[in-house]
Protein backbone atom coordinates (compact mmCIF):
# COMPACT_ATOMS: atom_id res chain seq x y z
CA UNK A 1 0.00 0.00 0.00
CA UNK A 2 1.33 3.35 -0.98
CA UNK A 3 0.55 4.95 2.36
CA UNK A 4 2.88 2.65 4.32
CA UNK A 5 5.56 3.49 1.76
CA UNK A 6 5.42 7.14 2.71
CA UNK A 7 5.64 6.44 6.41
CA UNK A 8 8.55 4.10 5.83
CA UNK A 9 10.38 6.71 3.76
CA UNK A 10 9.92 9.28 6.51
CA UNK A 11 11.23 6.80 9.06
CA UNK A 12 14.44 6.34 7.05
CA UNK A 13 15.75 9.79 7.90
CA UNK A 14 18.53 9.22 10.42
CA UNK A 15 17.29 10.28 13.83
CA UNK A 16 20.70 11.73 14.69
CA UNK A 17 20.36 14.59 12.24
CA UNK A 18 16.66 15.21 12.79
CA UNK A 19 15.44 18.06 14.90
CA UNK A 20 14.06 17.01 18.25
CA UNK A 21 10.57 17.48 16.93
CA UNK A 22 7.92 18.34 19.48
CA UNK A 23 4.43 17.09 18.69
CA UNK A 24 2.38 19.80 17.05
CA UNK A 25 -1.22 19.57 18.22
CA UNK A 26 -3.74 20.57 15.63
CA UNK A 27 -7.35 21.38 16.47
CA UNK A 28 -9.48 18.31 17.16
CA UNK A 29 -12.07 18.40 14.40
CA UNK A 30 -13.37 16.13 11.62
CA UNK A 31 -10.60 15.35 9.15
CA UNK A 32 -7.70 15.73 11.61
CA UNK A 33 -6.43 12.18 11.19
CA UNK A 34 -6.28 12.56 7.40
CA UNK A 35 -4.41 15.86 7.80
CA UNK A 36 -1.97 14.41 10.34
CA UNK A 37 -1.30 11.35 8.20
CA UNK A 38 -1.15 12.89 4.75
CA UNK A 39 0.44 16.28 5.42
CA UNK A 40 2.61 14.99 8.27
CA UNK A 41 4.23 12.38 6.05
CA UNK A 42 6.49 15.00 4.45
CA UNK A 43 6.50 17.95 6.86
CA UNK A 44 5.74 18.85 10.44
CA UNK A 45 2.27 20.20 11.11
CA UNK A 46 3.50 23.55 12.41
CA UNK A 47 3.54 24.57 8.71
CA UNK A 48 -0.26 24.70 8.98
CA UNK A 49 -0.51 26.70 12.21
CA UNK A 50 2.27 29.08 11.06
CA UNK A 51 0.22 29.90 7.95
CA UNK A 52 -2.89 30.89 9.88
CA UNK A 53 -5.23 32.62 10.09
CA UNK A 54 -5.04 34.49 6.84
CA UNK A 55 -5.67 31.99 4.05
CA UNK A 56 -9.23 31.61 2.80
CA UNK A 57 -10.77 28.41 1.43
CA UNK A 58 -9.46 29.09 -2.06
CA UNK A 59 -5.94 29.78 -0.79
CA UNK A 60 -5.90 26.54 1.25
CA UNK A 61 -7.19 24.61 -1.74
CA UNK A 62 -4.35 26.08 -3.82
CA UNK A 63 -1.82 24.98 -1.18
CA UNK A 64 -3.14 21.41 -1.12
CA UNK A 65 -3.20 21.32 -4.94
CA UNK A 66 0.43 22.52 -4.97
CA UNK A 67 1.41 19.69 -2.60
CA UNK A 68 -0.20 17.16 -4.95
CA UNK A 69 0.71 18.61 -8.37
CA UNK A 70 4.09 20.24 -7.71
CA UNK A 71 5.43 18.11 -4.85
CA UNK A 72 3.86 14.81 -5.91
CA UNK A 73 1.97 14.06 -2.69
CA UNK A 74 -0.07 10.88 -3.41
CA UNK A 75 -3.40 12.13 -2.06
CA UNK A 76 -6.67 10.95 -3.59
CA UNK A 77 -9.39 13.48 -4.46
CA UNK A 78 -11.58 12.48 -1.52
CA UNK A 79 -8.80 12.95 1.02
CA UNK A 80 -7.71 16.22 -0.62
CA UNK A 81 -11.25 17.53 -0.19
CA UNK A 82 -11.32 16.50 3.48
CA UNK A 83 -7.95 18.20 4.06
CA UNK A 84 -9.10 21.45 2.43
CA UNK A 85 -12.33 21.41 4.48
CA UNK A 86 -10.40 20.88 7.71
CA UNK A 87 -7.87 23.64 6.94
CA UNK A 88 -10.55 26.09 5.84
CA UNK A 89 -12.70 25.52 8.95
CA UNK A 90 -9.92 25.36 11.53
CA UNK A 91 -7.09 27.45 10.12
CA UNK A 92 -8.89 29.66 7.63
CA UNK A 93 -9.17 33.42 7.55
Amino acid sequence: MRWTGIVAAAALIPAAVCADEMPVRLKEAPGISIVEGRCGACHSLDYIVMNSRFLDGGNWEAEVTKMIKAYGAPIETEDAKAIVDYLKKNYGE
Binding site: A19, D20, M22, S44, S52, F54
Partner: peptide, 28 residues
Amino acid sequence: LPSGTREEAVLDALPGKKPLIKLTYRPP
Protein backbone atom coordinates in the same frame (compact mmCIF):
# COMPACT_ATOMS: atom_id res chain seq x y z
CA LEU B 1 3.46 38.24 12.29
CA PRO B 2 0.38 36.08 11.62
CA SER B 3 -1.40 35.04 14.84
CA GLY B 4 -0.75 31.36 14.11
CA THR B 5 3.00 31.98 13.75
CA ARG B 6 3.01 33.75 17.11
CA GLU B 7 1.19 30.80 18.69
CA GLU B 8 3.42 28.13 17.22
CA ALA B 9 6.95 29.62 17.22
CA VAL B 10 9.20 28.69 20.14
CA LEU B 11 12.87 29.01 20.99
CA ASP B 12 14.39 25.63 20.31
CA ALA B 13 17.94 24.38 19.80
CA LEU B 14 18.90 22.06 16.95
CA PRO B 15 21.88 19.81 17.78
CA GLY B 16 24.99 22.01 17.87
CA LYS B 17 22.98 25.23 17.70
CA LYS B 18 21.91 27.89 20.20
CA PRO B 19 18.16 28.22 20.80
CA LEU B 20 16.80 29.94 17.70
CA ILE B 21 13.24 30.87 16.75
CA LYS B 22 11.71 27.61 15.53
CA LEU B 23 9.17 28.19 12.81
CA THR B 24 8.99 24.60 11.55
CA TYR B 25 10.60 21.38 12.83
CA ARG B 26 10.59 19.24 9.67
CA PRO B 27 12.15 20.36 7.46
CA PRO B 28 13.89 22.63 9.96
